[in-house]
Design a protein around this nucleic acid. Structure first.
Length: 576
DNA sequence: ACGCCTTTGAAGGCT
DNA sequence: AGCCTTCAAAGGCGT
């Protein structure tokens, strides 16, 4: 098995995750090409890291000086630079083992927890990127993934939401049971909703049920009265129409559903020009705007970002999301497999539930122009020389972070079988489409992901659960390619660069590495990673993004001099 | 007011 | 089958 065992043999088994580090792989590839082939990749990496780090250390100050003054830089460029600077300043310590206090999933949500940064209850009702959507403040919270997979917080006496007969006499909307354990999250006071926004808050298990007790057939039932939303108003079929104001079973607005912020101005502005079709059009428009916007479920990284953003903001003085996201991106890579796996698991579950809740929903629905209020996003032009080339030749030190490659994160076939067994993948998976096996295995699976509700112990993503798949050949021991996400396993410590060296001795190199050594050229499908979305992202990031420097987070979080971070972009950019 | 930036992952569409 | 594009969150910043 080509996966790195963070030293534990607790391989989570998602090869594809490795590919997330395709940059790393690519760079390693380049490195190995450029340097002696015999050199251990890890050595190369670490040495490069050290070099860059030392460079960074010694020249971080002079870097700015050396950097030629912006020639004909646009404001964007300047902004970028400032961003880079900021990131440089702030990111540093982020790459030491993040001081994760523990995983939120098993944390008992505590509003009073100091873990909640002040700003965590972030900006309320902000619009997401100008999309006229309303987000309740509780939608945003660093502890969002606080969803607890343990039953202990859920009194077994509470009937499942869909059986909840409690109906609000006023609204006719089924009321959530308000279990004492949940109430802290969702103090559904008249005007306000929960204070703890949780992207998956609506998934909070009840009655000791699995997080996703909803079966394909049953989840709609609780909403008959709630589905009073004028169907004509909605482009969504009634069953897709969120109950009422996007209320979830629990009466809690589903984070994925946002009601377009209908601008009131239109209503009175119409008064003047009531006549004619104009008014009608306006009306129509307004109605359209009222259509709930079902957002995409957050992916693992988004969940992670949501949770960690506040933390990063707190740790650093950064506020710019772009810079923070860079940091988070690197932190994401620095996460241990298990940690990442948890997010993947969450994301998977959210997707799953999302799919169940809105069977007809397609991500395409949210594409520009497909729903009111959404402006077309202008495609960012790829700058001519902005290829990945530079980046590849100047490995990003941050990428030499622990090769947390494989996650048994539920990535469908890819995760289950790994890249080396693509023949086992379902067709769609090979084309990066929806995994049919995954859907069949999961979506139709009425049984909870984990019977005891403890996803931590037996995550459904566990290949064995997902697919007894015929393809899971006996040839390969399960331990190798289908390792369950046993969170009981000791999480491999985040590796420092030095550790990374050690890691390089880890048994089977990641597939990517193998491929790299074998395949050589990155171009096209040289490595398996080309099949992985990460490659797409790689191409997407077009160097400009990935090469952006994110380095030092001043203050406490600074790494010891041994492992400062190196702004790659500085290296890459300095070339010309 | 609105778009861009920036990250990763998922998914749809196009070729 | 592979590549490309869009969207999801977030908040500062530029236009």
């Amino acid at each position: 098995m080509p996966q790195l065992n963070g030293g534990g043999g607790d391989d989570l088994g998602a090869n594809d995750e490795m590919i997330s580090f395709k940059d790393e792989g690519e760079q390693e590839e380049k490195i190995s090409e450029n340097s002696s082939a015999e050199r251990d990749l890890a050595d190369v990496k670490s040495s490069l890291v050290n070099e860059s780090e030392t460079n960074q250390n010694s020249s971080s100050d002079s870097e700015a000086e050396r950097r030629p003054p912006p020639r004909s830089e646009s404001f964007r460029d300047k902004t970028r630079e400032s961003l880079e600077e900021a990131a440089k300043r702030q990111d540093g310590g982020l790459f030491k083992s993040p001081p994760y206090p523990g995983y939120p999933f098993i944390m008992i949500p505590d509003l009073t927890s100091p873990y909640l940064p002040n700003g965590s209850l972030s900006p309320t009702a902000r619009t997401s990127n100008k999309v006229p959507v309303v987000q309740h403040p509780h939608h945003v919270h660093p502890l969002t993934p606080l969803i607890t997979y343990s039953n202990e917080h859920f009194t077994p006496g509470n009937p499942p939401p869909h059986l909840q007969a409690d109906v609000d006499p006023k609204t006719g909307i089924p009321r959530p049971p308000h279990p004492p354990d949940i109430s802290p999250y969702y103090p559904l006071s008249p005007g306000t909703v929960g204070q703890i926004p949780h992207p998956l808050g609506w998934l909070v298990p009840q009655q000791g049920q699995p997080v996703y007790p909803i079966t394909t057939g049953g989840f709609r039932h609780p909403y008959p009265t709630a589905l009073t939303v004028n169907a004509s108003m909605s482009r969504f079929p009634p069953h897709m129409v969120p109950p009422h104001h996007s209320l979830h079973t629990t009466g809690i607005p589903h984070p994925a559903i946002v009601t377009p912020n209908v601008k009131q101005e239109s209503s009175h502005s119409d008064i003047g020009s009531l006549n004619s079709s104009k008014h009608q059009d306006a009306k129509k428009e307004e109605e359209k705007k009222k259509q709930p916007h079902i957002k995409k479920p957050l992916n693992a990284f988004m969940l992670y970002m949501k949770e960690m953003r506040a933390k990063v903001v707190a740790e650093c003085t950064l506020k710019e999301s772009a810079a923070i996201n860079q940091i988070l991106g690197r932190r994401w890579h620095a996460l241990s497999r298990e940690e990442q796996a948890k997010y993947y698991e969450l994301a998977r579950k959210e997707r799953q539930l999302h799919m169940q809740l809105y069977p007809g929903w397609s991500a395409r629905d949210n594409y520009a122009g497909n729903y009111q209020g959404k402006k077309k996003k202008r495609k960012r032009e790829k700058q001519a020389g902005e290829g990945n080339e530079h980046r590849e030749y100047f490995p990003n030190p941050c990428l030499s972070l622990p090769p947390i490659t494989d996650l048994s994160a539920p990535k469908k076939c890819r995760a289950r079988f790994g890249l080396d067994q693509q023949n086992n993948w379902c067709g769609p998976c090979r084309r990066k489409k929806k995994c049919i096996r995954y859907i069949q295995g999961e979506g139709s699976c009425a049984s909870p992901p984990s019977s005891d509700g403890s996803l931590l112990e037996s995550p459904p993503s566990s290949p064995s659960m997902i697919s007894p798949s015929p393809s899971s050949k006996e040839s390969k021991p399960q331990t190798e390619q289908m390792q369950p996400l046993s969170l009981t396993m000791k999480p491999p410590p985040l590796l420092s660069s030095s550790q990374h060296q050690h890691l390089s001795m880890a048994p089977p190199p990641p597939l990517a590495l193998l491929d790299n050594s074998g395949a050589g050229k990155t171009s096209g499908s040289a490595h398996n990673g080309s099949l992985d979305p990460s490659d797409v992202s790689s191409s997407r990031s077009t160097g400009s993004a990935s090469s952006r420097p994110i380095s030092a987070c001043h203050s406490h979080s600074l790494l010891p001099s041994s492992a400062p971070t190196q702004p790659l972009s500085l290296v890459t950019k300095s070339i010309d």
